[in-house]
């Protein structure tokens, strides 16, 4: 009998690692592993801002690390394109607790996986999804919707929960043995840990409690703030890194301020000055800030005071704040001694 060809979606977490081991080692399939990069990965963004782990080292990408442990190439596929951003700005099935449109996001990923599967001539796609593990996106009815809308009916195997789900085409045709699959469900990880031990898997990342910025409350506020202040529901690609950077203030419907918090963020903000004002105090160390939109004179004074407030000159009576945009330069003299309460109403 020919060797079945299976395309695996690997995040690097325990569940997808186990799914890969089951499909490759228990079912004996030829496996191709892929990882979709959405641009909303928390670890990736922290690495961008130079945030290291507790041991001072930058951690490797989890999916790549899983590939190293299993001795398999994990292909990184960048899906952080406008098509993906339009999906998350206009999700057909709505959002989860925060800005996470998990069902639509999964459908988008599975549509892309289906295209790769078909080009490769594979038999099925598999994932580490576990029935009932996540409240919304891993309910039985939702798994079915994702499968239907992505055009993968009968070609999507969840090896960890497969025995609780209808058989896939590959099982029906006897290409793979359903008896070797599992019936795991729910949030407890006991069974997965036992299975990991059986596979001799000693190293795997602990569930991080969400590694996607869209599930983060503070990030979601900034994300929706953009969508709410725009005539059309659209978010641009270069706005995403900025959403995870700095303190954000909504000064008016058309004007937004971003103030950096660290050296790393200063560096990050400098990359996004195109079409934005770069604002910083002169003569004293302090944060960099970006301003979107065209502020009025009063708003420029307010913004300059906020920027001054976060720098070393915050106790001075007078501070010079420099505004730069596309070669032009302006200087404002302001009093940075502004009360927190006066700033709070603008905070996003």
């Amino acid at each position: 009998m020919r060797k079945p060809k299976a395309l695996g979606l690997v995040s690097g977490g325990l569940d997808s690692t186990l799914a890969l081991l089951i499909v490759r080692d228990l079912l004996g399939c030829e496996v191709r592993a892929i990882h979709f990069y959405t641009g909303f990965c928390i670890t990736e963004s922290q690495r961008r801002r130079g945030i290291a782990g507790k041991d001072g080292k930058v951690k490797p990408n989890e999916a790549l690390a899983a590939g190293a442990r299993l001795g398999i190439e994990v292909e990184m596929i960048d899906i952080s394109d406008q098509g993906y951003l339009d999906v998350i700005a206009n999700p057909k099935y709505g959002y989860g607790a925060n800005a996470n449109p998990c069902i639509d996001c999964r459908i988008d990923m599975f549509v892309r996986a289906r295209q790769i599967l078909e080009e490769w001539g594979g038999d099925f796609v598999f994932t580490g999804e576990v029935l009932g593990q996540r409240p919304k996106s891993q309910r039985r009815s939702t798994l079915w919707v994702i499968e239907r809308d992505s055009g993968l009916q009968g070609r999507l195997l969840r090896p960890l929960s497969a025995k609780l789900l209808p058989p896939t085409q590959a099982e029906i045709e006897g290409l793979i043995d359903r008896e070797k699959l599992f019936a795991i469900s729910g949030r407890s990880r006991k069974e997965q840990m036992a299975l990991a031990e059986k596979f001799g898997l000693t190293e795997y990342p602990q569930p991080a409690g969400g590694c996607c910025y869209l599930t983060d409350e503070a990030f979601a506020r900034k994300f929706f703030d953009i969508l709410d202040h725009r005539p059309e529901r659209r978010i641009e690609r270069d706005e995403i890194p900025l959403l995870a950077t700095g303190r954000h203030f909504r000064i008016s419907p058309a004007v937004k301020l971003i103030v950096s918090r660290t050296e790393g963020e200063n560096f990050q903000l400098r990359r996004y000055t195109d079409g934005r004002y770069l604002v910083q105090a002169r003569d004293v160390p302090g944060p960099l800030a970006l301003v979107e939109g065209e502020p009025t004179w009063e708003e420029m004074v307010l913004i300059s005071r906020i920027v001054g407030r976060y720098g070393k000159g915050r106790d001075r009576a007078k501070l010079v704040v420099v505004w730069e945009k596309e070669g032009g330069k302006d200087e404002l003299v302001i009093d940075p001694r502004i009360e927190d309460s006066a700033i709070d109403e603008y905070r996003i």
Binding site: R47, K57, V58, K59, P60, N61, L64, A65, G67, A68, L70, G71, I72, E73, V74
Partner: peptide, 11 residues
């Protein structure tokens, strides 16, 4: 520095 070593190991 972190990613390339694990990528090489996997591939």
């Amino acid at each position: 520095e972190a990613d390339l070593p694990v990528w090489c190991q996997g591939t």
